[in-house]
Simulated scan of single mutants.
Amino acid sequence: MNEQQIVEMFMSYIQNERNYSENTRLAYHDDILDFQTFLNQQHILNYQDVDYLSIRLYLTELKRENYSRSSISRKISSLRSFYNFMLREEIVENNPFTSVSHAKNHLRLPKFFYNEEMEALFQVVYEDDEALTVRDRAILELLYGTGIRVSESADIRVGDIEQTYQAILIRGKGNKERYVPFGSFLEDAMATYFTKSRHMLMAKYQKNHDFLLINHYGDPLTPRGIRYILTKIIEKAALTRKIHPHMLRHTFATDLLNNGADMRTVQELLGHASLSSTQIYTHVTKEHLKATYAKHHPRA
């Protein structure tokens, strides 16, 4: 079995057994091919001959080429997974990447909207009952009320909404499905959206599809279109600091934790495969507590 066949086996594995997204599979493939190019340059004939010293030489080469810390860490992670697969398939006898680590960049805390900023955003979408304003209201209530990704919201069909149980079926990364509950604010916003916006626009332009969110012509909204709408809402609210629509998801998680939700529940709601992805929000809540203490305690 040659190197190309081994890589093809691994790509099939992460697609069919691990159900990784297309972008993730491409990243893995590129990382492995980059490493293969390095091995060829070093006249290392097969994966079994790779040892700790050759890996250190590879990392030195990556640094010389000015790869960022996060990029190098991702390559190490990709190659460690690749070698674990080969170890499982008995192609190699050990995984030389097991003992290799690389420091990532300093932790960047997710940014979120403060309460007064969220109030300013909602004021924009509740100022009238025009068709597009009602649509924008539904989008804002949906993203803040469920914490789903913009890309996930664009994929929602009308049939995915379970009115009886007040939950929405969400298709997340890697085509993994989860149900996310919603509250009365989103329920009311959706009811108004259907009667005063979606039905009217689709009838006007004679459109017939099952996607929940639509543009002003009645066609399904793309993730890019939703981000554009959110950006316009943010601009209209006259928020001054640099902000991004994905901050709604960060705000959802931060508000839950600040109000007593447990980490596992937040992980499930966000659709994180690993708890470590969710734990970054504990740093945000700790910073929030520290700032509140410093502001209000007389001995701070």
Rank of each mutant, 00 (worst) to 15 (best):
A167H: 03
T195N: 11
E162I: 02
M190S: 07
T192S: 14
Q206D: 15
E177D: 13
L169A: 09
M190F: 15
N208K: 14
A189T: 10
T195M: 08
M190V: 03
S197Y: 06
T195L: 10
I168G: 08
N208G: 04
N175F: 03
K196Q: 14
R198W: 03
M202T: 09
T164A: 08
L186N: 01
I161W: 10
T164F: 04
Y193F: 13
G159A: 09
I161S: 10
L169T: 09
K196S: 10
Y165S: 11
Y193T: 05
F194S: 03
T164V: 05
K204S: 11
G183F: 00
E187A: 13
M190N: 05
S184I: 06
D188P: 00
A203G: 08
H199W: 00
Q166Y: 07
I161N: 10
E162S: 11
T195E: 13
H199F: 01
K176C: 10
P181Y: 01
Q166E: 12
K207P: 02
I168H: 04
K196W: 02
T164R: 12
K196L: 14
G183K: 00
R178V: 06
T192N: 15
K196V: 00
V180P: 06
M200N: 11
Q166N: 13
R171N: 13
P181A: 00
L186F: 09
I170M: 04
L186R: 02
M202K: 12
L169H: 04
D160V: 04
E162G: 01
R178Y: 03
G183C: 01
M190H: 09
I161Q: 08
G174K: 08
A189H: 08
K196P: 02
D160I: 05
A167F: 00
E162Q: 11
Y179V: 03
K204H: 13
M200I: 14
F194D: 03
E177L: 13
Y205H: 15
K207D: 06
A167I: 03
F194P: 07
K196T: 01
I161A: 10
K173P: 13
G159F: 06
S197V: 05
K204G: 05
T164E: 12
Q166W: 00
E177K: 12
G183E: 02
M190P: 10
M202S: 06
N208R: 12
